[in-house]
């Protein structure tokens, strides 16, 4: 089942926008609706669009299985390390040791309803980013494995 040129061009055009929107949802996870899982799913949808529209050999130049595996492992590792960091600051595992401390993502937050500051939230943006790239890597690896398995059966 080969897709037409229209589908391939549209997928090529939408692919970077999907990635950017997913990254926006991930980065603004502590201010607007969404978060790591949702943003990662949107990014993975962008790669899925490319994978559906093209043959397996066409996409391996842009989406590499090894890089996606590395993304997934790095995401989970970032989550664990950020959580373990709390143990060295007198907090529990996954305790929010960066919030409102003046350091990384540590600005004071205004109470009440406001537009929000991107540099607040402490641990939450880090965990969001970790989960985001983990979901992107995991779902893309699943799709790549399925596609490569189908290609072998055809032979």
């Amino acid at each position: 089942m080969k897709m037409t040129k229209i589908v391939r061009t549209t997928a090529d055009l939408f692919f970077p926008f999907c990635l950017v929107f997913g990254l926006y949802v991930v980065v603004h996870g502590h201010l607007t609706p969404g978060g790591g899982f949702q943003g990662g799913a949107v990014m993975a949808t962008g790669t899925a669009l490319l994978l559906v529209a093209r043959a397996y050999d066409d996409v391996t130049g842009r989406i590499r299985k090894g890089a996606m595996k590395a993304c997934e492992a790095t995401g989970l590792m970032l989550f664990l390390l950020a959580g373990l960091g709390g143990l060295f600051h007198g907090r529990a595992f996954l305790g929010n040791w960066l919030a409102q401390a003046g350091g990384l993502f540590g600005n004071r937050v205004e109470l009440g309803a406001n537009a929000g500051d991107l540099y607040t939230g402490g641990l939450i943006p880090l965990l969001n980013f970790g989960v985001g790239i983990e979901v992107l890597g995991g779902l893309t690896v699943i799709l790549l494995y399925m596609l490569s398995g189908i290609k072998e059966e055809k032979k």
Binding site: G29, H30, L31, T32, P33, G35, N96, A99, Q100, F105, G106, N107, R108, V109, L111, G112, N114, G116, T120, G121, G122, I124, N128
Partner: peptide
Amino acid sequence: QAQTGANNVVTA
């Protein structure tokens, strides 16, 4: 909001 410093309560 005061404890986690995040405006989005769901993510907090």
